[in-house]
């Protein structure tokens, strides 16, 4: 997300408008490669900006408090809960589930979710998939998780993505339909594909 005019800069004279409609800011969002110039209520979260202003409804509102993961998108390549990120504070490129396919072909994780039936109602699915995309990058970068054995801490090299590792690393995304084992299968499949 880029910003041009801002709500205010630290000179205290910002360009924010504190008019009768409440404070708003002009915000430039770069989402899935497209630049959007918007004037947004400062209260608008990235999630609501996507859903209500850009008609990108792939990211879901499950709890609106960072407790379910349905709103997960990638900001600057990192997975985040878009419901807790104020759009006005967001200044890196955003990728949502709508932006994962390339040249009309689904992302390998999207294909894997279909092949493994790693979804039922589908409401958590975009968040699961965005989360999994980042998971593979994090593991490739060697980031540890809660279940990574401390003494297996390899500062260099990719993390060993066992099923336990995938389960832990996907635990920020609730699925009430209970697709977890299939989600783990799908992530493992996509992981095999990417390391192959």
């Amino acid at each position: 997300m880029d910003r041009e005019g801002t709500a205010g800069r630290d000179d205290g004279r910002g360009e924010g408008r504190d008019g009768p409609e409440g404070p708003t800011s002009s915000v430039t969002l770069r989402v899935n490669g497209t630049v959007h110039a918007l004037r947004l209520d400062n209260r608008t979260t990235l999630l609501d900006a996507l859903r209500e202003h850009l008609d990108l409804t792939g990211a879901k509102k499950g709890c609106d408090h960072g407790q379910c993961g349905a709103c997960t998108v990638l900001v600057g390549g990192r997975r985040v809960n878009s419901c807790l990120l104020l759009a006005v504070a967001c200044d890196e490129p955003v990728t949502t589930v709508e932006g994962l396919a390339r040249d009309g072909r689904l992302h390998p994780l999207q294909e894997a979710f279909v092949a493994r039936d790693a979804l039922q109602c589908g409401y958590c699915t975009p968040g699961q998939i965005c989360s999994a995309v980042a998971l593979l990058d994090e593991a490739a970068a060697g980031h540890p998780s809660h279940v990574t054995p401390p003494h297996a801490a390899r500062a260099e090299g990719a993390a060993d993505l066992t099923r336990d590792e995938i389960r832990e690393r996907m635990s920020g995304n609730l699925c009430r339909c209970g697709a977890y084992p299939h989600i783990v299968d799908a992530v493992a499949d996509a992981h095999r594909e990417t390391v192959r």
Partner: peptide
Amino acid sequence: ERRDARHKVTGTARYAAEHT
């Protein structure tokens, strides 16, 4: 294969609050 799977994994399946 689940018929709506592709809509759901691409975020194009619309739910009740996703019509404006």
